[in-house]
Design a protein around this nucleic acid. Structure first.
Lengths: 358, 358
DNA sequence: CAACGTTGTTTCAACGTTGTAAACAGCTGC
DNA sequence: GCAGCTGTTTACAACGTTGAAACAACGTTG
């Protein structure tokens, strides 16, 4: 193995515990001893063995982030913020992929107990509320973006119903009457699909418009394109589509454009997630932007409070902010095909100023 | 803490070591004892404490994957495969973000020694060859996609020079003569930019064409769009652009289309990485597809061989395969604006059959 | 000057695990 | 009856760390 406290203590001519005290910044150490120890520490290039420290303290300093798929932009963007927020607590983050699969989600919830991980942030898809409630494990758990209310664990999400309603209202506000919803799911026990569907329905009902709902198995571009193609081939194609996430929307746009129809002239398209792709697609994509940094920070904070024991009370439900970003896929740019100044994109935002609400 | 071997041993009426033997599948345990122990194990729902096990064995079962940015599609797609390949070895993966920053890359290389991690897969950007060579740490290290040869550590990458040459040859083969390269970098000590630039130059030189090289700071859509806007505004705009990654290419396409020019009619665009976005952009993006699954598997295998001590010899250099995928951004579809059958995308590939080489 | 508090340092034990070596039981073969 | 097996089980120590308690040396106080 490497250099241990023993080795350092030996070299510095003090006890192991004294070295430990220096390493941990204990106050009552004489300047002379401290100097000797620090000399020895740097001479041997000591690094604490975290396995041992963790064994002693019962903590690992590792949290898990369990997501359906890390390579879906929404999740990878979110991961970035979670990793950053965790780093502020000196935690490191392992990523677990569940593929939205029930068995895998169970495994993750189970595997928490192997003492390798202090806490878990889970984005559940397949696992049901009852099953989560029945879990005996007392490891800290935070749910991310799901629909479970008054459930067994803390959770954070945007107000999905309201966000979906806002988007649908926006589409209706453009004068569209045949607004379709794309992205409903049958088997999602705790995903956001039912909430978004509910928001869509509220808005449609408020304007006495007929609903069109298309289901998909997964939330990728391919599914969005396939579902949109089916809609286009139907007897009464929509003049606007609210897709339950941006990937579906991008796939749908691709299908519309390939069919020869125009976005938004013939069909307006809106998504939800604000992934980077939508800021640079042609046309750029109208979407709901959850405050991902805030989501991540809240999730990590909730976990922290559970871990340091400052909260034992019942599960809390936190809401993160979102903004509606209106872009070209629902409202065309004022000057179409105008040449762009070279620095137009340097801000990293879309080519058109975002209109925000909430 | 939780249930320990001690507790199980007590309940089963055997020694701690016997329980340990059962848990670890030691052969010489009598059927009767084994039954008793297993009964107790499941009754108490025992989970091994990995901190303790790791302390004892000097292994943690955790590897780190250090990337510039997890939310860049290429890296998140790659992460998916690395996590999957690591899972087969029963390793879990922590993600470290370096932002391509020298200080952070150093920290990561340094932090390996805290015994929290058995090995490291690093995608280096800023850190130089000399510095890597000077590292004293003997922790297993595998470099991913960098240009260091005969260096201090194992590494895996595609043949970047050849891939870049293939792309450039393809553009030239279309009859384009003003082929620009977009994505060179000044400060990348070990990134792939110089290799891709070299490949571009080889091809241009072979056809006696004049080179146009545009530098960028980072590899995002915004930078691609900004750089392309600058090119469009120049005295002699290109008729083809080879972008050093797909994000740059997508940004560049957006800038071209917004300017009123057509892709590929006026300017052909090609990228490198084969991120999912490029399979569904309008037009779809011609690109080089590294075999990411193979890259991940080789990286994990190299790490494994180092960890189990089966290899001590000098650093090895491994090549992963790639394919050139020719799509609409360089070769338009045969029937533009034709309506699409509904199942056209269900395979998850692009709307046009990919042409592959190598 | 004895009792007491403070500061600096050490000793001890324990966290949960597993490798080593040894103990023990039941054999076989002489 | 004994040596030498094989198979099964155990005691012990150790991995590196830190909390609790003990201790020594000091200065302060009554």
């Amino acid at each position: 193995m490497g250099v241990s406290l023993r080795d350092v203590a030996h070299l510095a001519g003090v006890s192991v515990k004294t070295v430990s005290n220096v390493v941990n910044g204990y106050a009552h150490v004489s300047p002379l001893t401290r100097a000797k120890v620090e000399q020895a520490l740097s001479e041997l290039d000591y690094r604490p063995n975290l396995s041992a420290r963790n064994l002693r303290q019962g903590r690992t300093g590792v949290i898990a982030l369990a997501l359906p798929e890390i390579d879906k932009p929404y999740f990878s963007e979110l991961s970035r913020f979670v990793i950053a927020a965790a780093a502020e607590q000196r935690w490191i983050v392992v990523i677990e992929q569940t593929d939205g699969d029930l068995r895998r989600e169970r495994q993750v919830l189970d595997g928490v107990r192997d003492h390798r991980i202090d806490g878990l942030i889970l984005s559940p898809v397949a696992i049901g509320e009852e099953e989560l409630a029945a879990r005996t494990d007392d490891t800290a758990l935070v749910l991310l973006g799901e629909r479970i209310h008054d459930g067994p664990a803390d959770h954070v999400a945007i107000d999905n119903v309201r966000a979906a309603r806002d988007v649908t209202e926006h589409l209706i506000g453009l004068g569209r009457t045949r607004v379709a919803a794309l992205g409903a799911q049958d088997n999602a026990a705790s995903g956001t699909a039912p909430l978004r569907l509910a928001g869509y329905r509220e808005a449609m009902a408020a304007h006495r418009l007929a609903e069109t709902v298309v289901k998909v198995e997964r939330y990728g571009r391919a599914e969005g394109a396939a579902a949109m193609s089916a809609l286009l081939a139907s007897a009464d194609p929509p003049d606007a589509v609210f897709c339950f996430n941006d990937l579906l929307a991008l796939g749908a746009m691709r299908a519309i454009l390939s069919s020869g129809a125009g976005v938004p002239e013939d069909i307006a398209v809106a998504g939800l997630d604000d992934i980077e792709d939508g800021r640079f697609s042609t046309p750029t994509l109208t979407t709901v932007a959850p405050d991902k940094a805030q989501l991540a920070r809240i999730a990590v904070d909730l976990l922290k409070q559970r871990l340091d024991g400052s909260v034992h009370r019942p599960a809390r439900e936190m809401r993160a902010d979102y903004r509606l970003l209106i872009r070209e896929s629902t409202v065309p740019p004022l000057r179409r095909a105008a040449s762009l100044p070279g620095d137009r994109w340097t801000g990293g935002i879309g080519p058109r100023p975002d209109v925000s609400s909430r």
